[in-house]
Design a protein around this nucleic acid. Structure first.
Lengths: 149, 149
DNA sequence: ATTAAAGATACATTAATAATACGACTTATA
DNA sequence: TATAAGTCGTATTATTAATGTATCTTTAAT
């Protein structure tokens, strides 16, 4: 019972973009440098975030991506649901269980899952950062500088 | 993001035991017949449930196991937490992330997880069965009869 | 036009972990 | 004392997440 690293990476990318208050585009390369992740994997997550229209991507030279909404408009439940995939947390049908017709387990787990997401709905990417986000921005800047050195 | 089948099996076993209103012991063999599961796996889950003192096991000839509490005393959050393992749903430490010191993600996911379990705390094994549980008992009886045939 | 930078996409491989199987041991009782 | 039943450790298999490789497309600078 764990969120995928894929989802984790997605959240970090959004956090990174939110920490930048300039209007410059960020590249996959930059993300890799800061978080020390493989370009291949980041690639996929960035693409996914683009398809979800959470970020706007621009191909070609001097391309990159940036948030397409303000950080406080990006609700965590949505991001996690989409990146994680919204399958039921228990699969009572494919591995068929004789009890299914008279069992309320599935429904309860579904509701419990919704409680999890409902809680996260009240928080956004802006809420991920302590204080103003300046602390995080500093960490990122330093990390980028030392990676480029 | 899925509960383990292991946890699922545990819940089914408890449900099965709850559906029996006689005082007879149930055997691993019987569980396997009813749910069509491998004995080896059920073995481990039964053992685990015994260690959690949710069931009382009796070795030797004519042995078996039965619930050590009434179904309405067994809260689902406890069962799932124990069988599933109570690790954080996101691991920000072992795969170290530079953002950690200034990031509130971990705390939010932890709280969200608690919301999930808190919801389940209000339900017990007794609540898993529709109505009086008679329907489920019938299903199990039929399944057992046809497996033994 | 050409070239280099950047994301898009498909496919292959590796690593992690859940699921299952096997086998030996212990306990209890008919 | 034979046998049924749970206990427990280890090994194997299957599934899926994670990562890697390669190629394509787009875009802007030169």
């Amino acid at each position: 019972m764990q969120l995928k690293k894929y989802t984790d990476y997605g959240l970090r990318i959004l956090m990174y973009l939110a920490s930048r208050n300039d209007n410059k585009l960020t590249t996959i390369r930059e993300i890799c440098d800061v978080f020390d992740l493989s370009a291949n994997h980041v690639n996929k997550v960035v693409h996914h975030l683009g398809q979800l229209e959470l970020i706007t991507t621009k191909r070609g030279k001097n391309g990159g991506f940036s948030l397409s909404k303000t950080p406080s408009e990006i609700h965590l439940d949505y991001v996690i649901r989409q990146l994680e995939g919204d399958e039921p947390w228990i699969d009572c049908y494919s591995s068929y269980c004789v009890a299914v017709p008279a069992c309320k387990l599935r429904g309860l787990i579904l509701r419990g899952k919704e409680e999890f997401y409902q809680y996260l709905h009240d928080y956004t990417v802006a809420d991920l950062m302590t204080g103003s986000g300046a602390e995080l921005a500093t960490i990122f800047r330093q990390r980028l500088a030392s990676a480029e050195a």
